[in-house]
Design a protein around this nucleic acid. Sequence first.
DNA 1: CAGGTAGGCTACCATCAGTAAGTTACCTCC
DNA 2: GGAGGTAACTTACTGATGGTAGCCTACCTG
Lengths: 205, 205
Amino acid sequence: MTTNSDTQPAKRRRMPRADRERQMMAVAEEVFVERGYVATSMDEIAERVGVSKPMLYEYFGSKEGLLVACIRQARGELFTATSTAALAADGPEAMLRSGLTAYFRFIREHGRSWSLLRNEAAVVGESAIAEIEAGRAQQSELIIAAMTMFAPQPPPLDLHAAAEVIVGGCEQLAAWCEHHPERSPEQAADLVMQLTWFGVARLVS
Amino acid sequence: MTTNSDTQPAKRRRMPRADRERQMMAVAEEVFVERGYVATSMDEIAERVGVSKPMLYEYFGSKEGLLVACIRQARGELFTATSTAALAADGPEAMLRSGLTAYFRFIREHGRSWSLLRNEAAVVGESAIAEIEAGRAQQSELIIAAMTMFAPQPPPLDLHAAAEVIVGGCEQLAAWCEHHPERSPEQAADLVMQLTWFGVARLVS
DNA sequence: CAGGTAGGCTACCATCAGTAAGTTACCTCC
DNA sequence: GGAGGTAACTTACTGATGGTAGCCTACCTG
């Protein structure tokens, strides 16, 4: 059952490291989401990949390392989505709105895996938390950069703090939206704009 | 070493269940914060309490149960702090500001344990996440209640969403403030007010 | 002081993260 | 087309740890 040996060509083939790593991460993300980090065993991931456990350790070092790799990839995708959207807009208000919209769209599409990875990270220890925090910092700095782009003076410390509030607020709002699917990503972005734009505009005026 | 039997009076004494539970939770919170949830063993908690492992299972059912109990207690304390502060103020703006200030003060004082418990929760599975979410919902409903108190019509759905944003934003800002100790709880509360009050006021007008 | 009960213990199991040491498919270079 | 090096891969194990079964005993009540 595990090895599909009914047709001879499907024998487990060797695979270049990069490909195998991608495959492992895809399977790992799936299983982590399905079972949760603690309840997931490395043996199960290995079995689903069709490979033996030491390979996972060869490539990712530890269970935590595997989780961190999954998080890092997800965060890279999220950052690509938001920064692309933001940079395509003109003017600070449009940039913030575009970035927010892209954010809520991304979360809606990758919602399950994203929230799981975000949540499960903390249990692991230092490195996974650090990875999550790095993701938030990335989003926060994107906001700061976009806002500062039109207000050349160095950003006030309050802008950093405000960016943190927005990032945290969006995260929570995205989670809330999962239970309120009638709210579209655009509406969510609009609400954050209505709630905070007045305050942000004053900081970058 | 484990049993301090050098002086005869210090023999391990039996203790009523409620007291023992409190003691266990205090020790567990300490160890969870110190090591992180995954790296903490029930044997270690039991040893520090001065009791054997099955007692922990007798009282809390599982490692997860113990964590959930710790989180629930912390969340109760936080809610007491914020709701007391908010209800002592008059007028929606003062209420929100008081609640926020109390929140950031509480986090600053119980910061380590709070963030750890919050973070570590997710790794466990359903019930710990649920506990954390319940805490956020509690704060969010407090905000809604305080705002609605002066705007008798039923709260618009946007107010719910806005409350979620504020709760999430405060959480993130509190974490950020740990790395920026020059910012006082009052300043943090003030920043959130400046950033969001305009938007909130429009919802409850 | 009998004796019930709640608090407590020892000793164990099953699972799972992580590792050591060996095997083999595939590619390269003669 | 074969030698042989290397990277992919395996089997078989260990130690730690969450969780449990079954027994013991301190303390209180009568």
